[in-house]
């Protein structure tokens, strides 16, 4: 006897589609709007390159944040970690260390902080909020110690080229950000590690009973996020040609916002890499477009907050529907 369980078709209506695709539609609408306002400028090669350059570092931090949010946690210390890594690399190179080992140490610093967060959250069972808030505080302090409160500059040209050099007239950080995004997407999509992260984020208990090492999974997500944010911090130092304890601190808020925006892109409301990049694009396009229109930066800040509220509300609506 055969039972035919026809899959329940998701009830689609135009309203639901709009909620579903709301974030992507918002991005398209922003692009159309700014293009209509300044057709001579907005979609030119120079400006698109500008936008990509401006969001490349945020994209990397947001990619790191996505990993942690896939397992159902979040990390407040990412931006601070990236500042510390960038400052450490700058400080080491000014102290005479060649570029390659300095960068390597910078990456290890990020990885260690990530592992620390992971141990606190997964093994000592601190809430992610408390643990990463505490590490953020300490890491900022370390960054002040490393920079002695000043801005480190006069970094080697070879290092600065990482952040400022161009290939085919497009800045290197854009390629690096795209490469990292593709790798993270593939990790989340195709590897057992990535699928385990999604399982843990979906249901810890079932995951555990199915033989997934939940603690190790969470630890690995935090560790990977720390390492990736170190990449972002080192690139930022190269891009600015300087390192300071506070540079890039706005990336924390924006990375969380981008992931939240991204969660509204897909139906299941999970953190996902493609969605995060849509979120990053919205933030970048909005800032660039409003700058081009000459909108006051205080107003820009208000609008950014409103977009985050809209995104969270949209994903909330969807959760309730399900």
């Amino acid at each position: 006897m055969t039972t035919t369980n026809v899959p329940v078709q998701p009830r689609t209506s135009i309203g639901k589609f709009l909620v579903q695709g709301g974030t992507t539609i918002a991005l398209l609408a922003l692009i159309v709007f700014f293009f209509a306002m300044r057709p001579d400028v907005f979609l030119t090669f120079t400006n698109v390159r500008n936008i990509l350059f401006q969001v490349s570092i945020l994209a990397i931090v947001a990619g790191a944040q996505t990993l942690v949010m896939v397992v159902g946690d979040f990390d407040l210390s990412l931006a601070a970690t990236s500042s510390l890594s960038g400052s450490a690399v700058a400080s080491l190179m000014l102290g005479g260390m060649p570029m390659a080992p300095a960068i390597l140490i910078g990456l290890v610093v990020g990885l260690l902080i990530g592992i620390g967060n992971g141990l606190l959250v997964a093994y000592l069972n601190l809430s992610a909020f408390v643990a990463t808030l505490a590490t953020m505080t300490s890491v900022i302090g370390l960054a002040y110690l490393v920079t002695q409160g000043t801005t480190l500059f006069n970094l080697p040209d070879g290092f600065n080229a990482l952040g400022q050099g161009r290939l085919l007239n497009v800045p290197l950080p854009v390629y690096i950000a795209i490469a990292i995004a593709v790798v993270l997407w593939a990790v989340l999509r195709f590897t057992t590690t990535g699928r385990k992260w999604y399982a843990i984020g979906g249901n810890v208990e079932v995951s555990r009973l199915s033989g997934i090492n939940v603690r190790r999974g969470r630890l690995m997500a935090f560790a990977a996020a720390g390492l990736i944010s170190a990449v972002a911090g080192i690139l930022l130092a190269a891009r600015l040609g300087s390192g300071s304890a506070v540079q890039g601190s706005d990336n924390l808020l924006f990375s969380v916002a981008a992931v939240f925006l991204g969660m509204t892109v897909i139906k299941s409301g999970q953190a996902n890499l493609v969605g995060t990049m849509v979120g990053v694009a919205i933030i970048g396009v909005m800032s660039n477009g409003l700058n081009i229109l000459g909108v006051n930066s205080y107003v820009q800040q208000v609008v950014t907050g409103l977009i985050i509220i809209a995104a969270v509300t949209l994903s909330g609506l969807k959760t309730r529907e399900r």
């Binding site: 300044r38 400006n47 401006q54």
Partner: peptide
Amino acid sequence: SPATGRTEALAIVADYLTA
């Protein structure tokens, strides 16, 4: 924010110059 003064000014001027 003074913390992000350099990146903010960079973006403001870069975007103004494209426009």
